[in-house]
Amino acid sequence: MASQGTKRSYEQMETDGERQNATEIRASVGKMIDGIGRFYIQMCTELKLSDYEGRLIQNSLTIERMVLSAFDERRNKYLEEHPSAGKDPKKTGGPIYKRVDRKWMRELVLYDKEEIRRIWRQANNGDDATAGLTHMMIWHSNLNDTTYQRTRALVRTGMDPRMCSLMQGSTLPRRSGAAGAAVKGVGTMVMELIRMIKRGINDRNFWRGENGRKTRSAYERMCNILKGKFQTAAQRAMMDQVRESRNPGNAEIEDLIFLARSALILRGSVAHKSCLPACVYGPAVASGYDFEKEGYSLVGIDPFKLLQNSQVYSLIRPNENPAHKSQLVWMACNSAAFEDLRVLSFIRGTKVSPRGKLSTRGVQIASNENMDAMESSTLELRSRYWAIRTRSGGNTNQQRASAGQISVQPAFSVQRNLPFDKPTIMAAFTGNTEGRTSDMRAEIIRMMEGAKPEEMSFQGRGVFELSDERAANPIVPSFDMSNEGSYFFGDNAEEYDN
């Protein structure tokens, strides 16, 4: 993207840094990872977990959730003011799984939030270390993106479920800051804005008074975040219109849905970061690795190297396929839920299948599930090659597409044709070009129609051997075009429920 120079890199967003050079960025990201790792080690000690239990991804998720809940100030305040039966607002906890007599047992633990905050700050040299908290939120978000298709949420806001490739980060909490905003897809931002506008339509006082002023500035800020994701002048001009509207209503909703559809071809720039579970960072720190000293990046080879040398386990339900569970977590670790499966298959070195073909449910185990038949197995999170994460949407291309997802959002900077089903997408653009945004709409449609099938995206960008740390010898991959490109292809993934 041309304006790259004016933006802070995501590592800076990730670490609240002012302008830093590459070495400083690597050190501050490393410091953040160190903090998460030290916190995780301490929690495993508190909970008396064995090494194996500490490497269980379900335990990692519970521990991450506990610290996120302990620092969720708004919710904590709300819980104190609106006490609900049987919930102690000062405590947080969740299921911890232990191996007892050759069987997995679930144990519900409860801790004072104050105590968890103390352990977290102690692991982070006394700081609140917001960057580390956001990092864990993005890992949870990436896992949700890989596990669930947001059909219901899309339909509720009037969008087409086939636009799911635009929904990265749709389950990120509001408090995820600049680093969170960077990884949100165009569809996620559109959905947040539509929800806001709908509230304004239904509630006369939404934009009024002292609160209304705050609401208005939040609305304009979200519009600017979305505008910054678009790469064409016409899309940005249309966002200006939406932002400046005196009284946002149905016309703005129409414009936003139009823009979301246009992003299936004229893709937005959305950041991709490899955020790993805390149970990967903990053992690495415990083994003596100093992330701050060595430096770390979320968008280069580092996460690949770390996963190459990590042992992570997962509980497996009786009829689940461990290899499929591994694929789910591998995609989440690489922030690749909406990437082209052919690119992923090449990088991973084994075939990556669409969601609907995987015999696996989510990673988390519900409290009512029976533990008797639970097994555990090693997650295979290694890769054959590594590639640089991208934040450009890439230019655009036609490809055989599917009944489910009709476009992709690249996660890796790797040369390819970008699949999208042009006739299906263009069919949504018939007729409606009147109104105050008509010239911009016409211009956007013209650009979409001009998108050429034979153009290559990320020209000359390749993948790298894991021994090639400096990215000196790019390998331009070859793809098996007979395979499906979309992950949520004609899909039956479970729906995400809060």
Rank of each mutant, 00 (worst) to 15 (best):
M159A: 03
P161S: 15
A286S: 05
D203L: 04
G362L: 11
G17K: 00
R355Y: 10
G177W: 10
G94A: 07
E64W: 07
T378K: 04
Y385E: 12
G268N: 02
R400I: 02
G349K: 10
D51M: 09
Q168A: 15
A85E: 06
H140T: 11
S345H: 03
R246D: 07
M448N: 12
L379K: 08
A284H: 13
V242I: 03
D372Q: 15
G169Q: 09
S402A: 05
G17N: 03
Q58V: 09
S310N: 13
L315E: 01
C279S: 12
S245G: 07
Q168L: 13
N334E: 07
I41A: 00
K7H: 11
R117E: 06
G282D: 12
R389Y: 11
G126S: 02
D372A: 06
A181T: 05
M136Y: 04
D491T: 02
R38I: 04
M159Y: 03
G282N: 12
H324K: 10
G132S: 15
V270A: 03
R26D: 06
G94T: 04
E18G: 13
E339G: 12
L172H: 14
V100K: 12
S245I: 01
K351Q: 09
E494C: 01
C333H: 08
D302S: 03
H135I: 07
R150E: 08
D34G: 02
P283I: 00
R121M: 04
R246L: 05
S170V: 08
S367C: 02
F488Y: 12
E449I: 13
S84K: 00
A178E: 10
A234E: 04
H82F: 00
G5V: 05
M196P: 02
N224M: 07
G295F: 10
K198R: 02
I116H: 12
F291W: 12
H140C: 11
G126I: 14
R389V: 02
N59F: 14
E484N: 13
P277L: 14
D240C: 08
A323T: 13
T188Y: 09
S50M: 01
L315W: 08
A153N: 13
T378M: 00
R121E: 09
V285M: 09
R384C: 00
A493L: 00
G435P: 05
Q231N: 00
D480K: 15
T146C: 07
M43W: 09
V183Q: 06
R117S: 03
E24W: 04
L358A: 08
Q168R: 09
A234S: 05
M189S: 00
N144A: 01
K229V: 11
A271R: 09
K198L: 14
K91H: 08
A403C: 00
Q168D: 04
T188D: 10
A493C: 10
E73W: 14
P410H: 08
G212R: 12
L256G: 04
Q399C: 05
P477Q: 11
Y10V: 00
P283L: 00
A234T: 14
L133W: 12
D128S: 13
I388C: 10
D468S: 05
T62V: 04
A178M: 15
G356N: 05
H135D: 03
K90A: 04
D290W: 10
K184E: 12
G158Q: 01
W104G: 08
E115N: 13
P423N: 15
T62C: 02
S345E: 14
Q364P: 00
N395Y: 02
E494Q: 03
T6W: 11
E380D: 15
L193S: 13
L379P: 14
I253G: 08
V363L: 00
D128G: 12
E455T: 02
C333N: 15
R243A: 00
A472F: 12
R221L: 12
R213S: 03
E434A: 04
S28A: 00
V183Y: 07
P95W: 09
S28F: 03
E18V: 01
M191L: 05
L379Q: 14
